[in-house]
Design a protein around this nucleic acid. Structure first.
Length: 879
RNA sequence: GCGGAGUUAGCUCAGCGGUAGAGCAUCUCGCUUACACCGAGGGGGCCAGGGGUUCGAAUCCCUUACUCCGCACCA
């Protein structure tokens, strides 16, 4: 080898250079060719709100592993990157920025404000790209998309218009979730419930014309100002006579009817009397419709009380209003009691502000017709979800889905393509209108924008050039749609995954992807959620700077099983040691390899010795395992398999076994040549196996091996080759390893030093085995530190006897007093062997076991018994 | 309330019907010319409790307890 590796593994020395090398090579960009087998995947577009966190590092590492694996496996592979405009979230961060400057978005006005958000977007989209680059993401940046791009916006507009024309989008006055802080309606999925220790207020409502009261209980006394009725259960004897009478609403002194409503009222709960506020509670809203109760809006869009709440309250905040209402009730003697009450408060997931249910005119998607095919697609296996347990959650949600509120009273987003005229006509149109098609009056465009997830729902096809009817021949769409795999967090299963499935099926007639893998949440070592308040947040870029991208990626892969992922410094450190190991093993190999891959020629299998056959056979098995586990999204199993092989088989054993030959201490020149060739082979294949997990270090090393391909990332991914399988070589090599381990154990147990040398007697059960041990006597001598290995001789009396992997061995130790501790150890060994033997014999003595268990199990048990018997007898001779 | 997941070595988890595993941590011994981010070796578990199915259960079924996550939500 001409080139050598640096003495120390320092990722910062080459990671950026390697990434630039890939970009220059154009390896991230697939060809647009319908004939070639393709693999495509779209990134879950990160929000342009800020920097990427460790969760992004995870989801993008997992995608890159799959993408690199598929690309090396011969697929024409596209990983399409991009970002999401993230309506509310981005608007919020920019508003906060403005706040620091002492202005609000209203001071700027819509147009100027949106300009500011675009500036923000440009800056952060660049930053996000840089971060993904540092992680090694092999995404095709030439196809980078943003949800507000012109093409994607056209697709959004087309979908909106089409759904409207099909009667699946409507505009209506309805009870919606209103966020007073963001001053917009939000959809059901954006509402989160927070368990809160609140209060339950019991209030007396006087009954008109009597001196009786009805006691109602409420958690939100301020809403009573908008009460327009009191409900009891129609069959409740306690109150039956009151139905039809009026109660007097305290403070407001307004008569409100007492109605019977079996749906709203649960007789058993509380006093069995419910105040009805149709304008500020979903259940009350419906009860109000049933009983013809008027809707009085007492809380406005900003969470302040309206004029309808009366002069005492108009304009004050809803929180303050609550205190004042309670105070007034107390003064009037109508407050019965206040109980502690634990209940769930609905808050806006983005800003934690308590939701105000409110009647408002909004745009909705009639969802049921879209949901049905989406349910079927998962049910009939067109789409699989991994881990499968999420399918139940998916069905549960889809089957109980409610219409989707898609309008947002925001400025940042896709403006709804509806045009209102002064005569009250509304027209939805692909083209911008200036006059009303119905009456010719002037029109203005709807000011609301669409829910961010409306555009994200089209992501798998809008990013590939689909823009509605007539755009289906877009080349990327033709070649890469439908995509194959979607990898994302389970937290956006409803927000995003479900919507993509619905939209994809509706508009392209195809499921947008066939496999969904939902990854877990990254947590800290103690399983806690990472949060700024706890201070346990790990910034992926810090880790990359510290230990390199490869160590971080490998740690994430090893930890990712679909469940929550505990991540801490110790884990990352452990796997950065592994990268270091790869580096140093490669360094060692390259000191001996003297011909590059291009000129190495095929391996002459007939000349291979047992140890070489063994390592190649093991490598082949690992290759099978990795390919299989990756196809199942078992990143943990796949990465652990290579880790185990590379470190504990290749480095710990094979390299050590090859050293005597490589260093010229043993064997012929041809032996050495062959050993070098095998060393190169195993290193090459291992690097290729590892590449999807550790792209940088594998490339840095592999380039120096002089392969045919210009980059490891387009070299073929190893596949299983039957000729490499060799169970006999594995059996014999395992025996050698076990014998060496046994000698090492005994050395330690008996208190000998590494310098003490022993004589080993070993016997094969046939001439072939004897020859094998004769051939590898030098290895036993070297690695077990012996002075002699005797294959023929009879061990002298007093030698330590044992049976290892079925082979009888005897070891002659130099004179040394055997301590009580050592005798104890022998005794325990015997005890352990005897216990197992007895258990096995009992099994065989059980007629039902022999009769019912599969024959191979019975045989294996018999074989084990024979082995244990032999071992027990041998061990007993040591006493 | 409905649904899902979990409870295995000190920690984090894998194994999901046939002799209890890994990583980290811990202890002992070693600076053997790739690597001390190393090597060799050791200790440590009635697989949450109970019941059942089976020749055989950490693994399947039932049940209890606790934890977590969705969804729904009673004022």
């Amino acid at each position: 080898m001409k080139e050598e590796l640096a003495t120390r593994y320092e990722p910062s020395q080459f990671e950026k250079r390697i990434y630039a090398f890939w970009e220059e090579g154009g390896y991230f960009t697939p060809v647009v060719d319908k004939e070639r087998p393709k693999f495509s995947i779209v990134i879950p577009p990160p929000n342009v709100t800020g920097r990427l966190h460790i969760g992004h590092a995870l989801v993008n590492t997992l995608q890159d592993i799959i993408v690199r694996w598929k690309r090396m496996s011969g697929f024409n592979t596209l990983w399409l990157p991009g970002t999401d405009h993230a309506g509310i979230a981005t608007q919020m961060v920019v508003e906060k920025q403005l706040e620091k400057e002492g202005i609000s978005r209203f001071d700027l006005g819509r147009e100027k404000f949106v300009e500011r958000v675009w500036q923000w977007k440009e800056q952060h989209a660049t930053e996000i790209k840089d971060q993904l680059t540092r992680l090694g993401a092999s995404a095709d940046w030439s196809r980078e998309r943003f949800t507000l791009d012109e093409g994607l916006s056209r697709a959004v507009r087309y979908v909106f218009v089409k759904l409207y024309d099909d009667g699946l989008i409507y505009r209506d006055l309805a009870m919606v979730n209103w966020c007073p802080r963001c001053r917009t309606a939000i959809s059901d999925v954006e509402v989160e419930f927070k368990e809160t220790n609140g209060k339950l207020y019991h209030i007396n409502y006087p009954i008109e014309g009597t001196d009786r009261f009805l006691t109602v209980a409420t958690t939100r006394p301020e809403t009573m100002l908008g009460d327009t009725g009191v409900a009891v259960h129609p069959e409740d004897e306690r109150y039956a006579d009151l139905i039809g009478k009026n109660a007097i609403l305290p403070i407001m002194n307004r008569p409100i009817p007492i109605v019977g409503d079996a749906i709203l009222v649960d007789r058993e709960f509380g006093t069995g009397v419910v105040k009805v506020t149709p304008a500020h509670d979903k259940n009350d809203y419906e009860a109000g419709l049933r009983n013809n109760l008027p809707q009085v809006q007492v809380i406005g869009e900003e969470g302040r009380m309206t004029d309808a709440a009366g002069a005492d309250f108009s304009g004050i905040d809803r929180k303050e209003a609550r205190e004042r209402v309670v105070e007034m009730l107390r003064e009037q003697g109508l407050l019965v009691k206040i109980d502690q009450h634990q209940h769930n408060v609905a808050v806006h997931g983005k800003c934690d502000t308590p939701i105000e249910p409110m009647i408002s005119r909004q745009w909705f998607v009639k969802i049921e017709p879209l949901a049905r095919p989406a349910i079927d697609a998962v049910r009939n296996g067109e789409i699989t979800i991994t881990p499968q347990s999420w399918e139940a959650t998916y069905f549960n949600w889809m089957e109980n889905i409610h219409d989707w509120t898609i309008s947002r009273q925001l400025w940042w987003g896709h403006r709804i393509p509806a045009f209102h005229c002064t005569n009250g006509h509304t027209t939805v149109s692909m083209d911008d209108l200036t006059t009303c098609p119905q009456c010719g009056a002037e029109v203005t465009q709807e000011t609301d924008v669409l829910d961010t997830w409306f555009s994200s729902g089209l992501w798998p096809f809008s990013t590939l050039g689909w823009q509605g009817e007539g755009s289906e021949d877009a080349p990327d769409y033709q070649v890469f749609y439908p995509t194959d795999t979607l990898i994302t967090g389970f937290d956006i299963l409803f927000f995003w995954v479900a919507r993509m499935i619905m939209m994809g099926l509706r508009f392209t007639g195809k499921a947008p992807f066939s496999q969904v893998f939902l990854n877990g949440l990254v947590r800290d070592e103690q399983g806690r959620k990472m949060s700024k308040t706890i201070g346990n947040v790990i910034d992926p870029l810090d880790v990359v700077n510290e230990v390199g991208a490869d160590a971080l990626r490998f740690t994430l892969a090893v930890s990712a099983s679909g469940r929550d992922i505990p991540l801490g410094k110790s884990q990352i450190q452990g796997y950065s040691a592994f990268v270091n190991k790869i580096w140093n093993a490669s360094r060692f190999a390259m000191m001996h390899i003297d011909v590059d891959l291009k000129h190495a020629g095929p391996i002459e299998r007939d000349n291979l010795k047992t140890v070489e056959r063994w390592i190649l056979s093991r490598l082949n098995a690992v290759t099978r395992e990795v390919n299989k586990q990756l196809s199942l999204f078992r990143f943990d199993e796949a990465s652990k398999a290579i880790y185990q092989f590379f470190w504990h088989e290749f480095c710990d054993w094979y390299i050590e076994m090859a050293k005597p030959v490589l260093l010229g201490k043993h064997g012929t020149d041809d032996d050495r040549k062959l050993a070098k060739r095998v060393l190169l082979e195993v290193l090459d294949r291992s690097l290729r196996l590892l590449h999807p997990f550790m792209p940088f270090v594998t490339e840095e090393i592999w380039l120096k091996l002089g392969g045919v391909e210009p980059s490891i990332m387009i070299a073929p991914y190893p596949i299983t080759e039957e000729v490499l399988e060799d169970s006999e070589a594995e059996r014999l090599a395992n025996a050698v390893r076990a014998i060496i381990t046994t000698v090492r154990n005994l050395r330690a147990e008996r208190g000998y030093t590494p310098k003490d040398r022993f004589t080993l007697f070993i016997r094969g059960s046939n001439p072939r085995e004897s020859n094998f041990f004769r051939e590898y006597a030098y290895l036993l001598t070297e690695l077990a530190r012996l002075n002699e290995v005797s294959v023929e001789g009879e061990p002298p009396a007093g030698a330590h006897l044992d049976v290892v992997e079925g082979f009888s061995i005897a070891i002659v130790f130099p004179e040394k007093v055997v301590s009580a501790e050592q005798l104890e150890k022998v005794r325990r060994d015997i005890e352990k062997t005897r216990t197992e033997l007895e258990a096995m014999q009992a099994k065989l003595g059980n007629e039902q076991f022999v009769r019912n268990a599969p024959p191979q199990i019975v045989q294996a048990t018999q074989a084990r018994v024979a082995e244990l018997q032999k071992k027990l007898e041998t061990l007993q001779q040591n006493q």
